[in-house]
């Protein structure tokens, strides 16, 4: 097997382990602990491709120099990280947080007859949105509550980084 395939396989195998852990254990994770649990699992499993590549290096699976092995390990971690990112942002995230997806599910409950706007708003409204989000933000430690007032505790997380990049893009495209 070539170093190229070993690197990709190591990253994909690590992601498969993440996916198995995610599918088995995350059904019991409460939504307020979700972000921390996801980040923790991804960070902990980043060690996995390093271990796999270390074992393969030990058994000299491919004849290559140590620098090439080091580079391949970094790439395996990168492939794993990107796969996790894409899964969380494009598959799990929309299921868990998208307003549109929730609306589709609520309307689907109405069957072929559909649902009246009032019925829909009784099931899912601004209060529901705030309740779900507050739970998540409090659990993630982004905000704190004291005497019924909410305060931002941590004004910098991974979403602020994305927003900052999006802000630069927005400025550049002028919209």
């Amino acid at each position: 097997m070539s170093m190229d395939l070993l690197t990709a396989a190591s990253g994909i195998l690590s992601f498969s382990i993440f996916l198995i852990i995610h599918l088995v254990s995350f059904r019991w994770v409460r939504s307020e602990h979700l972000l921390k649990a996801l980040l923790g699992t991804v960070l902990a499993l980043m060690v996995f491709p390093i271990i796999v590549m270390g074992i393969l290096f030990f058994f000299n699976a491919v004849d290559a120099g140590i620098l090439t092995w080091a580079c391949a390990t970094v790439l395996a971690v990168l492939v794993f990280g990107l796969l996790c990112f894409v899964y969380i942002i494009c598959i799990f995230g929309p299921y868990e947080t998208s307003v549109r997806m929730r609306l589709v599910r609520e309307i689907a409950k109405g069957g072929m007859e559909g649902i009246l706007p009032e019925e829909l708003l009784a099931r899912y409204n601004a209060k529901t949105i705030v309740d779900i989000r507050l739970q998540r933000l409090l659990g993630a430690g982004d905000i704190v509550e004291k005497n019924g007032k909410y305060r931002v505790l941590r004004d910098q997380n991974v979403f602020y980084v994305f927003d900052a990049i999006a802000g630069v893009i927005k400025k550049w495209i002028g919209r």
């Binding site: 190229d4 990253g11 090439t68 790439l75 492939v79 990112f85 894409v86």
Partner: peptide
């Protein structure tokens, strides 16, 4: 010169949704 062609392709494809 190490041929990381396949890994490179995976990285490129994954960068699109990112």
């Amino acid at each position: 010169g190490v041929p990381f062609g396949f890994t490179g392709a995976i990285i490129f494809i994954l960068l699109i949704p990112v």
